Simulated assay, not measured.
Amino acid sequence: MACVPDLDPSVSDRLRFDAAGLVAAIVQQHDSGEVLMLGWMDSEALRRTLSEGRVTFWSRSRQEYWRKGDTSGHVQFVKSVALDCDGDALLVRVDQVGAACHTGDRTCFDAGALDAVVGEAQQ
């Protein structure tokens, strides 16, 4: 069995994983800015995402890794990955092929807008 390298310490040292060892990964279409979905990554899922050019998540419900598109064909090709200022969230910019949501919708955020008071900047 081949030895799989760990996540680079220069990356892992900057991450703040939650109690379950996960970090939120917001997935965005690279050219339009459309927010597609939110997934969860541990250090291995992030290592795979950074090194393979395809997005890999940790499934909290199935307790296993899943590479987006392996069963559905709706692949996410990595364009860039950024860490937020607190180290507790990732922004993964992708080229999405097909639907991002497991429901078949383009984005997981098509479930309907919530009523909210719209704020305005003070002049």
Rank of each mutant, 00 (worst) to 15 (best):
P9D: 10
L90I: 14
V97N: 00
T71K: 03
D70N: 11
H102G: 01
L46K: 01
T56E: 04
Q96D: 04
G21K: 07
H74G: 09
Q122F: 03
L36Y: 12
W40R: 15
A121K: 10
V97F: 05
P9I: 08
L46Q: 06
G98H: 07
D8Q: 00
T49C: 11
F57M: 14
G21W: 02
V118A: 14
Q63L: 08
T107S: 15
V55H: 06
D86S: 13
D6H: 01
L114G: 08
A111L: 14
D115I: 10
A121E: 09
G39Q: 04
S61V: 05
W58H: 11
G104E: 03
G69Y: 02
L50Y: 03
L114Y: 13
E52N: 09
A20N: 03
G73M: 03
S10M: 10
P5V: 02
A100N: 00
G21D: 04
C108A: 03
A20D: 02
D88R: 03
R62S: 08
D18W: 09
V117T: 12
W40H: 15
D18N: 15
M1F: 13
C101Q: 04
G53Y: 11
V4T: 01
A99L: 03
A20C: 01
R47H: 12
V94K: 02
L50P: 07
V117D: 10
E120R: 15
S51T: 09
T71H: 02
G33T: 04
P5F: 03
L38I: 14
A116V: 14
D13C: 06
S59G: 10
V23T: 15
H74F: 06
L90W: 12
D88C: 07
G21T: 04
A121S: 02
